[in-house]
Design a protein around this nucleic acid. Structure first.
Lengths: 224, 224
DNA sequence: TGCAGATTTCAAGATCCTTTCACATTTATC
DNA sequence: GATAAATGTGAAAGGATCTTGAAATCTGCA
């Protein structure tokens, strides 16, 4: 279980992120200011920090420099859309990535995993995955089935990755929409069905994606 | 014993939830307005709050913000089907989950447990169960008997889970209908019999589900 | 602007699940 | 044992949920 520290002055945003990450198996700590964060960092080993840039008092950049004096923990910055801020500065100060609000839970988790992988916090270097006959090259964003390349659209690709990340779990349409389309998606639930249809077609035989009647879908890994 | 505060202007809804939760071993407090709720929260430690969104006077969102100023108690929102409301707002305000009315008691309890688990209020997170030869993988929503997969329909699955949750207890048809079908079910009692029949068949030998004559059914755990 | 591919919506049809009903069987009681 | 009440069971109607193809809409790009 990896520990993640969230630093944001807005309680709502903290709760939102906590909820997302809790669901993805991270242990969350939160602080509403740099000051509070330092205390937590002194007494706990954190694997990653997610921090808002715009904060009253010490802003994210200042807090980042402070943290960097003592620790190399990976840091991901949060910034609101349209907010004025300096991407270069963020990375120069030792930030590892940044996310623009609003973001979908899927994006957040994906970026966290990417950063952890880069910084070595995550053991398995998941640059490629193979499940049954399906092989995914994450770096090249290429998928092949039985050694034959297939081209997936963005949604199909994200769907596939999310399924694989949660293999053998029954996932509701609501969950899929929330995690891939983002929490503010308001369209029809049936949209998922259509993408499932095309994904199934492209993955070919193998019945990887099973429908769980009355619940949703499940990516079932064939016995090896 | 965990304390749960119910905030809803409708007395019937409050009583209904109280009844459900009381049966599941929670201690219930209830308030018909935010104002009343604040008093209860001042004088008691609550483990979770269930709150209607649509209320005269202060609505659920306002009450939520007020509560959040002083406490991090998990909050679950209730909303009527088709009601206009903002999922994003609810979660950003610090809500932890939401349930759309009408809901079955089973669903309510499941969501409460999920939230408590996420927020650390509940220790055990059982996502697989084994009783006799019956194994249930809750995440995959998969059931196997003697290591062979069996596919259960929605009702069969819920029935099985409820039986296991209340193993060795005689359960009346009325109870089963109320907890699995929901309080607003108006059909025949005999419906239960049919599902019991198919469940028995699918669970195979073992006589897990026994008939308690004149009362209902009972899931009996075989001696180990 | 116009195009091509991606995404979403829609609705008919297929499929599976749920409920009901009628009748067989079992159980309790006298 | 006879009777009434309760339960078991198979079949079939009725509902609900998925699948699918086609059309509409959106999006990025030249």
């Amino acid at each position: 279980m990896l520990n993640i520290l969230i630093i944001d002055d807005e309680a709502d945003m903290r709760h939102l992120i906590e909820m997302y990450l809790g669901n993805s198996g991270f242990a969350c700590f939160s602080a509403e200011s740099g000051f509070e964060a330092y205390g937590i960092l002194e007494n706990n080993v954190m694997d990653l920090v997610i921090m808002d840039i715009m904060m009253p008092g010490e802003d994210g950049f200042e807090v980042c420099s402070q943290i960097r004096k003592k620790s190399n923990v990976p840091i991901i910055f949060l910034s609101a859309k349209g907010e004025e801020w300096d991407k270069v500065k963020a990375l120069q100060l030792g930030g590892d990535d940044y996310i623009v609000k609003p973001f979908s839970p899927g994006e957040l988790v994906a970026r966290i995993n990417a950063v952890l992988r880069r910084t070595g916090g995550l053991k398995s270097d998941m640059d490629s995955i193979r499940i049954g006959k399906v092989a995914i090259d994450m770096k090249a964003r290429k998928v092949s089935v039985a050694e034959k390349d297939v081209t997936l659209t963005l949604k199909e690709y994200e769907l596939l990755l999310f399924f694989i990340e949660h293999k053998n779990q029954a996932l509701s349409r609501e969950q899929l929409l929330e995690y891939i389309w983002g929490i503010d998606y308001t369209g029809s639930l049936r949209t998922v069905d259509t993408h499932i249809k095309t994904l199934r077609m492209k993955l070919g035989v193998g019945d990887y994606i099973q429908t769980v009647w009355g619940v949703g879908y499940k990516f079932e890994v064939p016995d090896e």
